[in-house]
Structures are given as C-alpha cells and as structure tokens.
Design a protein around this nucleic acid. Structure first.
Length: 589
RNA sequence: GCCCUCGUAGCUCAGCAGGAUAGAGCAGCCGCCUCCUAAGCGGCAGGUCACAGGUUCGAAUCCUGUCGAGGGCACCA
C-alpha cells in the first residue's frame, strides 16, 4: 500500500524533473512514511522539503507543483499540503476494504515478500560452548537470532542458520577433565575438585553415565592424577594458581588415560551436552541448517590455510615465540596472537578460518549474533577479513545484551562460576515457550533487558503474550458462537459486502492490517524483531477495541458477512505474525 | 586508564538514515458486562527526552565533552 503511494510520488517527481524544475540529475527515490497523527492523513512525503534547495524554490511552492503533477488514482481520497511542506495523503476507504480478500487469499503468505531476491544470508547464533547447558543469556540470543532468520526468510532471503560448535580448545579440556574427576569420585577416589573445573550437576550426570556403563575401567589413583600438580587457588591470596592447577590436571589426565581413552571421556562430555543443547533449542523452536565444528577446521587444514594466507599477505610476525597477526593495521587496538608459544593455534585462528569459510561459501551477507560481552572481538574479526582481501562489511555482528531476571520484584542472582545459573530449560518450564520467545524479542537487542518472570507467567492483560493470543482466541470463539447459532461462517467471495464496513473502528483495524507487510519488511531489514511484537500488540488492541464496541454476529446478513471477513483477516495476520516469533496462536485460552 | 553499548513518564520500553503538539504498556485515579470469553474496552493524570555545548530553517534523533549504568580490554573460548 505504501509502495503504491510511493509510485504516485515517483511519477510526479519524474514529471517535474522532465520539466526541468528539479535542477540536474535524476529525481531521487521519494520517502513515504505513515503519519503519526491521523489528522495528517495516512501517508506523508517530505519530498518537497528535501528537494526545495535543489529546485531553488520554497518547500511549499514545490509541494504545490508536485501536487499538480501527481497522477490521479482511485487509491487516494485526498491530498493536501501541510506544515512546512509535507504532502499528506488520505486513502480511500475502498483501498483498505480491498485488502481483506487479498489477505484471506494470501493466507500465511500475507506479509511475505521477495525483497531479498533469494540472496543467500547466513545467520550464526547461540554458538555457546558445549561445556554446559544453555542458560537464560543464551536464550535471548537464540530467540533473537531465530526470529531475525525467520524474518529475513519471510522477505525473500535464502537463509542459512548455523551453530558454531566450539568443540576444541582448553575449555573443552577442562570439561573432559571435570567429568573424569567426578567419575573418579564416584569410583571412590578422594580428591579435591579444582576450583576452575565445571561444578554443575550435569557433570555428575555425565560421570555417572560413564561409571554405569564402564565401571572402574577408567579408574586411576587420585594420587597419581594430582602428582606434581601445582597448588590450586581456593581463596584469594593463598598462593595457589588455579589456571596452572587445572592445566596440569588436564595434562595428567591425557597422559594417564592415553589418547584414545581420554578422547572417549572428552567426547562423552561433548556429545552429551551438545545433544542436550540441540534438544533444548528444538523444544524452543530453534532449528539449524548446520552445526559447524570448530575441530573440523583444524582437521581439514582450514586453519593452517588461513594462517598461510595471512602470512603470504605479510600480516604476520613472530614475537616471544608466538605468531602474531598485525590487526592494528586494520583498526584493531592491539595485535593478536594466532599461534601460541606452545605451538597451539588460538581460538581466534579458528575464527578467522571459520569466517573465511563463511565468505567463501558465497553468502551475500553473514550475520553473527553474539553476546554483548564479545563486542571487543568484533574489530579483530573484521580486521582479519579485510587483511584477507575480503569486504568486512559483508559481515554484520549483532550484539545481544544480557537479560536480567526478576522474580517477586527481586533480581535473580546468577553466577556462572559457582554453577548457579538459571538454564534456558528452567525458564521455559517456568514461563512456557510462548512467553519466553515473545519476551526475549520484545526489546531491541542492544537494550539491557529486565525479564520479569512473574509478568511472563501472569495470565492477564498485563502480559503482552496473552493479550495478543487472546485476540486470536476471541476470533475463534466468535466463529464457534456462529456455528452454535447455526449461522453460516463461510465468508462470501471477494469484496462482496465489504462496503458495509463503515465504522471508524473498522477502518482503523483495516489500516492496521495494511501495515503488516511494511512492519515485517522493516523488522527484517533492520534486524529488529521488537517492531513486530509491538505491532502485534497494537493490532490486538485495535481488535479488542472493535470487539467491545460492536457486535459481529448481527441479524443483518450482509453486515455480518462483512464483519466476519474482517475478523478472519485479523486472525490471519495475528497468526502470521505470531508464527514469525514462533509463538502459538491458540483457539481458546 | 582506553574502547563499546545504553541513559526518554513512578516502573518496563517504543520513537533515533533530523522533520509537523515526544508515544505505548504497567502502576495511579474515573467509568463500562441481562450482550460473541471483563484474560477485554474507554477516559484522566503523568516528561527541562541524564547534563552542557555545537551543527541545522528545524535535534530525543547528528557531533564534542561531563556524569551515571552495564560490558570489554588473555599466548581462555
């Protein structure tokens, strides 16, 4: 609808340009926006103000000429010049009425478009280390990434969703060792669990599974495991070193178990947790096209290849036994280590290889959804891409701020270190998938979020999820009532009877319905799902207002038919919008 | 110390590729069910858009600085 108005202005501008009114060059693309104030009509263009300087006229004079050049259209009921030079359009009620059969015909396709033109976009999100279950912070990234991906798909992009699995590196070794130590405790070994180990209950569970399946097969005397290991740091200033302590334990684990058996324990931990994450996300309505293994990058030689390319391009140097990437040449604040003194490549090296791989796979755009705590990481990844001769602007990093949970007005304390964090699974169990999904994307991602658990659980109008779902359920309820009363619920074809929709609330509702495709497009292109949830709330509000003001199942057959068609269209749009945020659209509450 | 994000109604947040009197939801106050679910609707009240400068015909929106909140500054991932 907006596009149709835009087309009119575009033609008018072209005419003025042909007449030489606009000075040199082709006319610019006109900006059309929905008005805030209904007294300004439905749409507004600031073209005259923007082009006044170029045309060397006053904005209002140019607006007059533009108005005169505007082609006639049945769409428009009224055009006027207002304020400093805005051109305001009021559309004909029929233009809105015609939308209803369009929506009913398009069904789940209403609001979808082809702006993306099938361009391939990759969205990588969550990508949490498989060292423990997902917590509520990951949940926000999961919901956000999933909705951004679905939105982009809805506007015609070919979307590839990917989870980068950090299945290599020290953190994973710490997990493997943690599992083994817990297992040894289950075997009856006495030991002091390292302060830097993973202490969550899930580690016990994995250890228990190992013990159940393999008895004492992996048992080694605790004394041998801790032999020659530097002191742990139990509390501040006790002279211990928890990093050196855990590293030595890892080394001992590898040595005492041998490669194959160490690998077995390691894989057991990794796979158990990864399976759990996979299930968790699937239950949350989050699905991926690929789970990309970090380890595979090393094994395929991709990491070495990336390093070689950087070396050939002259961006590497050696210092203190390590290999560094001169990222400061590309705007990073300091240079970064690629290969450590001990010969191991860093996580960053893998990440360079991974991003190189992403770009080589030919995605027009690559979107990374990261936790805000990784923001310092952005410049170095972009630096690496630039250094490799690619265009860093193809990569878009979206940073998602943390969510702070509130229960009973109190902040829910969380600490990853002690293993006391609320998991995504617990959250889903407490508030349900619908509320979790909706609440997570209700706010701009860069906004710190207060997640009110009590509100998310409440079955009241205060809760925006119930509010929107209730609107959907009410439509279904009306249809049930119609059936009970023996009234025909099959709507008439096309725009039959729609001229009976003359109430202001009906027009408001139709206007809201007409905005939906614009909302989806804006939300998708700006990667802002909250625009969609806000819209859904507004649409639900328009519907509830209408519901309260008018009876739908009236005696007058034609009016009844018209109103039923309108609310069917409302139901369709609510369904489509809720589907995009993966929230259910129930027929009864 | 340096860097990033944020600071809008009592609370939670929209609005920010500059535009017409700053919006919504809670909470507060006042109304609305013999009628399709009141899990709803309407109304009132509530703001020096953190602060100070600057750019502009025009700034919540752009720039600089100050203050405040969160985060980041590893040969961890």
């Amino acid at each position: 609808m907006k596009q149709q108005v835009q087309q009119l202005v575009r033609e008018a501008l072209q005419r003025l340009a042909d007449d030489g009114v606009l000075g040199d060059g082709p006319p610019p693309e006109p900006q059309i926006e929905r008005t805030r104030d209904p007294s300004h009509g439905d749409f507004s263009s600031n073209a005259a103000m923007v082009l006044a300087k170029r045309a060397r006229t006053k904005p209002r004079d140019l607006a007059e000429r533009l108005l005169a050049a505007l082609p006639a259209s049945p769409l428009v009921a009224e055009v006027e010049i207002a304020g400093p030079g805005f051109i305001n359009f009021r559309l004909a009620a029929d233009a809105y009425r015609r939308l209803i059969p369009e929506i009913l015909l398009a069904g789940s396709g209403y609001g979808r478009s082809h702006i993306g033109a099938g361009k391939r976009v990759q969205v990588e999100f969550v990508s949490a280390n498989p060292t423990g279950p997902l917590h509520v912070g990951h949940g926000r990234g999961a919901a956000y990434g999933a909705v951004v991906a679905d939105l982009l798909e809805a506007v015609g992009y070919d979307v590839h969703r990917e989870y980068y699995v950090n299945d290599a590196g020290r953190q994973m070794d710490i997990l493997g060792t943690s599992v083994w130590l817990r297992y040894l405790e289950l075997c009856g070994e006495e030991l002091r669990f390292p302060s830097n180990g993973y202490k969550g209950d899930y580690v016990w569970d994995i250890a228990a599974a190992l013990h159940r399946e393999h008895g004492d097969d992996y048992r080694v005397d605790a004394d041998r495991v801790f032999a020659g290991v530097p002191l742990d740091q139990v509390e501040e200033g006790d002279g211990g070193d928890k990093e050196a302590h855990i590293d030595a334990l890892i080394a001992n684990s590898k040595r005492l178990l041998g490669d194959n058996r160490y690998r077995f324990v390691f894989e057991l931990g990794l796979n158990t947790i990864l399976d759990d994450i996979r299930d968790d996300l699937a239950e949350f309505g989050v699905h991926y096209q690929a789970w990309y293994s970090e380890r595979s990058l090393t094994e395929s030689g991709a990491v070495n290849k990336a390093i070689e390319r950087l070396r050939e391009a002259g961006h590497l140097y050696e210092q203190n036994g390590a290999l560094w990437f001169r990222s400061t040449d590309f705007g990073d604040e300091k240079d970064r280590v690629i290969v450590r003194e001990n010969g191991q490549t860093t996580y960053f090296a893998s990440d360079i290889a991974y991003h190189l791989d992403k770009l080589e796979r030919g995605f027009a755009r690559v979107i990374d959804v990261w936790g805000a705590d990784h923001h310092g990481y952005v410049p170095r990844v972009k630096a690496a891409i630039t250094a490799l001769g690619d265009d860093a602007s193809r990569l878009d990093v979206l940073l998602v701020q943390f969510a702070v949970l509130y229960r009973g007005g109190q902040k829910v304390q969380m600490s990853t270190r002690s293993g006391e964090f609320v998991t995504l699974r617990q959250l889903r169990k407490e508030v349900g998938r619908d509320a979790a999904r909706f609440f997570y994307v209700m706010r701009r991602c860069e906004q710190h979020m207060d997640f009110d658990l009590d509100l998310a659980k409440s079955q009241s109008a205060d809760n925006p999820v119930y509010y929107v779902q209730y609107a959907h359920a009410r439509v279904a309820s009306v249809l049930r009532q119609a059936a009970d009363k023996g009234l025909p619920v099959e709507p008439s074809p096309g725009d039959t009877n729609l001229d009976r929709l003359t109430e202001s609330r009906e027009l408001d509702l139709m206007k809201s319905l007409s905005r939906y495709p614009e909302v989806v497009e804006d939300a998708a292109l700006s990667e802002e799902p909250h625009q969609l949830t806000n819209y859904l709330r507004e649409l639900a509000n328009d519907f509830h207002t209408y519901y309260n003001a008018h009876q739908f199942l009236v005696e007058d057959e034609k009016l009844r038919d018209a109103r039923v068609k309108l609310i069917l269209a409302v139901r369709q749009v609510l369904r489509n919008g809720l589907a995009l945020v993966a929230v259910s659209a129930p027929d009864s509450m």
